[in-house]
Structure formats: structure tokens, C-alpha cells
Amino acid sequence: IDAAQIVDEALEQGITLFVVNNRLQYETSRDSIPTELLNKWKQHKQELIDFLNQLD
């Protein structure tokens, strides 16, 4: 699994991931984030931050 897949998966569930001051953040209108997704974010945090920083 790679960062792009995780970002896409989040988007499919209505969650936008982004980076502020090198910290992973998210925006969503959902009430809660699925635990499975949160765990993936934690496991791949640095990859996600690097990936999202490249997009900007």
C-alpha cells in the first residue's frame, strides 16, 4: 500500500488529507473516522506527509 492509495481511500470516504507545518491534518463532514483508516494514517504518517508535500 502506498501514500497515494491511502489518500484516495480517504477521499472516497469524504475525507481530505493535507499537511500543515509538516503535520498530517484532515477535513471531513463525517462524524468519525474509521479506525482502520486512522491506523493506516499512523502507520504511514511520514510517507503521507512526504507525498502530500510533493503535491503542493
Rank of each mutant, 00 (worst) to 15 (best):
I1T: 10
I1A: 09
I1R: 07
I1Q: 12
I1M: 12
D2R: 13
D2T: 15
A4F: 06
A4Q: 13
A4P: 05
A4I: 05
Q5D: 08
Q5K: 12
Q5H: 09
Q5L: 10
Q5E: 08
Q5Y: 09
Q5P: 03
I6H: 02
I6N: 01
I6C: 05
V7T: 03
V7R: 04
V7P: 01
V7Y: 14
V7C: 05
V7L: 07
V7H: 04
D8Y: 15
D8M: 15
E9V: 03
E9L: 04
E9T: 03
E9W: 05
A10H: 01
A10Y: 03
A10K: 01
A10S: 05
L11D: 05
L11I: 08
L11K: 14
L11C: 14
L11Q: 11
L11T: 07
E12S: 14
E12H: 10
Q13G: 05
Q13K: 09
Q13E: 08
Q13P: 00
G14T: 02
G14Q: 05
G14D: 04
G14W: 04
G14A: 04
I15P: 00
I15W: 03
I15E: 00
I15M: 03
T16A: 06
T16P: 02
T16K: 15
T16N: 07
L17S: 04
L17P: 00
L17E: 01
L17Q: 00
F18M: 09
F18P: 01
V19W: 03
V19S: 04
V19G: 01
V19N: 02
V19H: 02
V19R: 01
V20C: 15
V20D: 07
V20E: 12
V20Q: 11
V20G: 05
V20S: 09
N21G: 11
N21E: 09
N21K: 06
N22Y: 06
N22E: 06
N22Q: 06
N22K: 05
R23H: 13
R23K: 13
R23C: 15
R23E: 15
L24D: 00
L24M: 03
L24C: 04
L24S: 02
Q25Y: 15
Q25T: 09
Y26E: 01
Y26D: 00
Y26K: 01
Y26S: 03
Y26R: 01
E27W: 15
E27N: 13
T28M: 04
T28Q: 03
T28K: 03
T28L: 04
T28W: 05
T28D: 02
S29I: 08
S29H: 09
S29P: 06
R30A: 07
R30Q: 06
R30D: 05
R30L: 11
D31A: 10
D31C: 10
D31R: 07
D31H: 08
S32Y: 12
S32M: 08
S32K: 09
I33N: 02
I33Y: 03
I33M: 04
I33R: 01
P34T: 05
P34H: 03
P34D: 05
P34N: 04
T35Y: 11
E36D: 11
E36S: 10
L37G: 01
L38P: 02
L38V: 08
L38K: 07
L38H: 04
L38N: 03
N39T: 11
N39H: 10
N39F: 12
N39P: 02
K40F: 09
K40N: 04
K40W: 05
K40D: 03
K40V: 08
K40M: 10
K40I: 09
W41E: 00
W41Y: 04
W41G: 00
W41Q: 00
K42D: 11
K42M: 14
K42H: 12
K42W: 13
Q43N: 10
Q43D: 08
H44I: 05
H44L: 06
K45P: 03
K45R: 12
K45W: 14
K45D: 09
Q46Y: 08
Q46A: 09
Q46C: 08
Q46P: 04
E47W: 05
E47V: 13
E47Y: 07
E47Q: 11
E47G: 06
E47F: 07
E47N: 06
E47D: 08
L48V: 06
L48T: 01
L48P: 00
L48E: 00
I49L: 06
D50L: 10
D50C: 07
F51R: 02
F51G: 01
F51Q: 02
F51L: 04
L52V: 02
L52W: 02
N53L: 13
N53S: 12
N53W: 06
N53M: 13
N53D: 05
N53P: 03
N53H: 07
Q54T: 12
Q54W: 11
Q54M: 12
L55H: 11
L55D: 07
L55T: 10
L55K: 14
D56M: 13
D56E: 13
D56H: 14
D56L: 11
